[in-house]
Amino acid sequence: MLIQIDAIISNGEGTPSQAPCDLIKVANNSENAPKSPVSTHTVAFSHYNNISAQLPVDPKTGELVMGGVKEQTEQCLKNIKAILESIDVPFDDIVKINIFLKNLSDIEAVNEVYTTFFPDSAIARTVAYVPARTTVVASALPMDALVQIDAVVSHGDGTPPQAVEDRHGIVIRANNTENAPKSPLSTQTVAFSHYNHISAQLPVDPKTGNLVAGNAAEQTKQCLANIKAIVESVDHVMDDIVKVNIQLKNISDIAAVNDVYITFFNRDLPARTTVGVSAIPMDALVQIDAVVSNGEGTPPKL
């Protein structure tokens, strides 16, 4: 295909046992980030806020910033920070980051800049909080940019009619397990309210830190085994997953991936997006992330 599109939809009535309510979407643009006629900077609904992907564009000039991938990464993150500040949301309320790179070789330079933005607050630094994260190597980006970044943000006060004073009634809960590969740049699982974001998992054996041997089927099995270990470490099961995103180095591997994929689920399969990418970190054949339902929610701050 030449194009593929997925979506997230507001669901004001909720799912049982939540009672229906008149929650509304709240959309906002900031003068301090580049505007677009085809998207809104930030769209909040209930306890989550989706930030449009930010290119390394100077909002004053509308042009790409001068310099290489470091300067471009900094501008992307500055744009996201400006958007969050425009709605009085701290940078460390980000629960998931997606980084799109034109060249995988730029990842170390991107990470160097990334670590200057996370953690942002003294509290986050104390607990070494970093969001869940996925890195995608794209064949091209708009404006011939080298990097593009989007984010999902926790939105404690919710959208009307929820009371603003409830802002701090819900907390971010981050967790790592020894049974899946760890990274200093991301947290394996970040829960907030009724959702839980799982960082992209490579087919890495957590005991050795190396890619597993074998083809796409074996690598898919390891990715999903890592996700399963993470999900079970927070007392959930694979069937609690509501969305899966799969990256494939070779789209022709999709049938082999599917054969393994269905063996990890017992009930209705999650929503899913599959994309072919130009490269995957560690020269892997597959990378998978997920969003998990978190019915118990996260606790109020004491």
Rank of each mutant, 00 (worst) to 15 (best):
P181N: 08
P270N: 03
A7C: 05
D93H: 14
M238E: 00
G209A: 07
V89R: 13
E108S: 14
E71H: 04
D6S: 13
V204T: 07
S105W: 01
E71R: 12
V57H: 06
R267K: 15
N111Q: 10
T73N: 01
H47M: 03
P59Y: 14
N250P: 06
P206D: 02
T187F: 07
L146H: 05
P90D: 13
L202D: 05
V127P: 12
I97N: 05
A174S: 09
Q247L: 08
L269Q: 06
K96Y: 13
I83P: 10
V291A: 06
S17T: 14
I3P: 00
T274Y: 06
D144C: 03
K35E: 05
Q18H: 09
R167C: 05
A279I: 04
N98I: 12
Q54K: 13
A213G: 15
I262S: 10
T177K: 01
V237H: 08
F91I: 15
Q247F: 02
D283G: 08
E63S: 13
F45C: 03
D150G: 05
Q247N: 11
V95P: 02
L285K: 09
P56A: 09
T273Q: 03
A44R: 07
D239Q: 06
L55G: 11
I241C: 01
A256H: 08
V237P: 00
N28A: 06
T116R: 12
P203Q: 09
L224H: 07
A140W: 10
M1A: 14
M238A: 03
E31V: 00
N11E: 05
P90I: 12
N28D: 02
Y114F: 15
A128K: 15
I83S: 04
V153T: 14
P160S: 06
H236M: 01
E178K: 08
G68P: 13
N111H: 12
V292F: 01
I254Y: 11
P56M: 08
V38C: 10
G68K: 07
I262M: 04
N79Q: 00
A174T: 01
P160L: 05
